[in-house]
Amino acid sequence: MHNMEHTAHTVKSYDEELALLVNTIAHMGSLAESQLTSAVQAVVWRDSDLANHVVASDSTIDELEQEVHKQVMRLLALRQPVAIDLRNIVIGLKISSDLERIADYAANLAKRAVVLNQLPTVKPVAGVPRMARLAQELIKDVLIAYVERDENKAVTTWKRDEEMDEMYISLFRELVTYMMEDPRTITACTHLMFMAKNIERIGDHVTNIAESIHFLIEGTLLRGRRPKQDVLASA
């Protein structure tokens, strides 16, 4: 069943429209990824201009989500899709929503970067780029899995959310310790905590996308507990 896409629809324009949908989502994905990269750079290099640019660019991704929404409605109304085509189109809606949230979190990251740049540097700030690098990797992997319909890659990415959670927990502990040691850093550390949370949420959305991809290919939901560390207990 995996190689079903290789056979083309008898009506070529149907294939073209589906390809357009996939391309639009892939484009959204790559934009979201670069938003995250830029936002992290804005933190590392304390570049507020870059951060503002990221915030402004968020609207592009929102527009793309609208576009995907439109395409999905059109396909549903005009093509009466079934089976794999139906799954493809429906998850397109879901994935674009997840990608839009990822981009939103990236923009939030940039907003906080602007604030953070007014404050003196704190040591645990290095934890954020580390988490962000992992997030970037996950986003890249999941997008490849989507475009190439690679079920293994999707499942692997799905499982790596555990790593993200571990990183978040350790950064959380570090920040708490830092705040306890030096109360002057509380403001900065709180911002960092929120930023870490944003990145952790990005990881969750990537997991959503991986689940959608699995549903597209296998037609069933991913069973089993979502790999989640009990964040609150270990805090």
Binding site: M1, M4, H9, T10, Y14, V82, A83, I84, R87, T220
Partner: peptide
């Protein structure tokens, strides 16, 4: 119509024949 087992079935119902 949502998840047929056989690829021939899928090919027919999605118009890939």
């Amino acid at each position: 119509f949502t998840n047929p087992v056989n690829r021939l079935t899928q090919g027919y119902i999605t118009g890939r024949f």
